[in-house]
Amino acid sequence: MDISFKSENEKFNYRVCAMMISDDKVLTMHDERSPYYYLPGGRVEMGETAELAVIREIQEELGVTPRIIRPLWLNQAFFTEDVDKLNYHELCIYFLMDVAGTGLLERGSKFISKEGHRTHTFEWLEFKRLKDEYFYPLFLKKDIFNLPNEFTIRTEIE
């Protein structure tokens, strides 16, 4: 069971995201439901650690098992989602991942992957392109240039 619940027009999510970086590019994705780019990852399940959740989500979405380098942020986000228009309170842990040996770089700068009935489009976006792209979370458009060396708690209010 995902750690997520909805109450009227508000939703709480506990998520994890994978920051997979190579040559000043970050692996982003979007799908048929979301016109914007976002990072691979998903919801943590009840009884699951954040570390296991990020590995599981990447295995489900990309069919590979990257190694966790370190956690970067716990982001407390408060936003209205562009697609479902719900007001979110989201806790997301961002992990820096090692993609060596996964074959992700060999798939090209843009590729498609299927997860069940959903089709995901993945793209390696240059850091400098993020500021001009329809991309969430907004804080990464700036903070990707200076990743923290220690796990950091941050808050984003849109």
Rank of each mutant, 00 (worst) to 15 (best):
F12W: 04
C17Q: 14
L147E: 09
K11T: 05
N9V: 05
A77V: 02
A18K: 10
I93S: 04
M46F: 09
E48P: 10
T65G: 00
R33E: 14
L62Q: 02
L74Q: 11
S4K: 11
A18S: 15
S113I: 03
L125C: 08
E133R: 11
F12Y: 12
M46P: 00
Y37E: 07
T152E: 07
E115S: 12
R107E: 10
E48K: 07
T152M: 12
R70P: 01
G108E: 12
I144P: 11
R43L: 14
L130V: 11
L96M: 12
E51Y: 01
R67D: 03
L105I: 12
I157Y: 05
T121A: 06
N75K: 03
G116H: 02
A53Y: 02
R56W: 01
E81N: 13
F78A: 10
K142A: 03
T28M: 13
L86M: 09
M97Q: 06
H120Q: 07
E32R: 15
G47E: 09
V26P: 04
P148C: 11
A50H: 14
V83M: 04
F122C: 05
L147A: 05
V54N: 12
V99C: 06
I68R: 06
D84M: 06
Y136E: 13
Y134A: 03
F111M: 12
E57C: 10
I157Q: 09
E32S: 15
